[in-house]
Amino acid sequence: MKENIDISVDFAGIQLSNPVFTASGTCGYADELADFMDINCLGGFITKSITLKPRKGNATPRIVETDSGMLNAIGLANIGLDAFIEEKLPVIEQLSVPVFVNAAGENIDEYVAVVQRLAAEKAIAGFELNISCPNVAKGGLSFGTDPAQVAEITSTVKKAVGEKVLMVKLSPAVTNIGVIARAAVDAGADALSLVNTFTAMVIDIETGRPVLANRTGGLSGPAIKPIAVHLVNKVYNEVAKDCGIPILGLGGIRTASDAIEFIIAGASAVAVGTANFIEPGCAVKIVEGIEKYCVRKEITNIKELVGSLEVK
């Protein structure tokens, strides 16, 4: 790091060496990206969604590429809490990067069960509450679209996290994301992450059927970036700015320039998702690019950039 540039971030009380995370579901459980980068060079790491019981996930095809994006309908396939604790936690314990566990479930009790079991683990910095997965029949997105349900799940899980940070991951598939963000913050969310993927469909015109076995999937990648930047800016202005709640901005980031847009819009940190699939290790390059930008723009502390959007 350049001596006179500070890109470290205080993220709801957690000290991050830089503002770049890898996003849940795109970077494995722990060290899967280690062949391509030093994971400890990240600002933060978010695990794949963990549910109380293992989940097989959806039938295939689970993905399809679209113009500048992709749809996925994995269906929260994961090894389940017990296997996560047994197999992956020891690996996480070896990492120095702050690790957030993305928690998911079919009902509030399942979210609480996941969080409660992990809340005492020193290696876990916090939790990302997944109330915005579009690809499961129960839970997921259904918790994230109604302010009353958002408040209920957030306040209930908040009681189980103890001293850990609770970040709530928001869906873009709502009429007014500001209302949802407000509900989460008022119910005790320490941070917000946005956005999850957009529910979308691709049709095979030869068969007349949807390409994905799940019919719909979540759209991610560069195609959603301008919408995500707008939504981050909206939540920053309407909710986060005044109450000092940090935003983790994500949606189509693959370069430092993309990340900086989110930071200017109001994100304290950013997460790289789909881009990990194409260039696994690009997150570290994004950290370097943010530093270079700060040098070029004579920004001594990245905080100056957060929410610095100039509007005439």
Partner: peptide, 16 residues
């Protein structure tokens, strides 16, 4: 299978 990453991250290329 259709796959996004090829390195076990995306879980797209499931074989039953």
């Amino acid at each position: 299978r259709m796959m996004a990453c090829g390195i076990g991250l995306c879980q797209s290329c499931a074989v039953e």
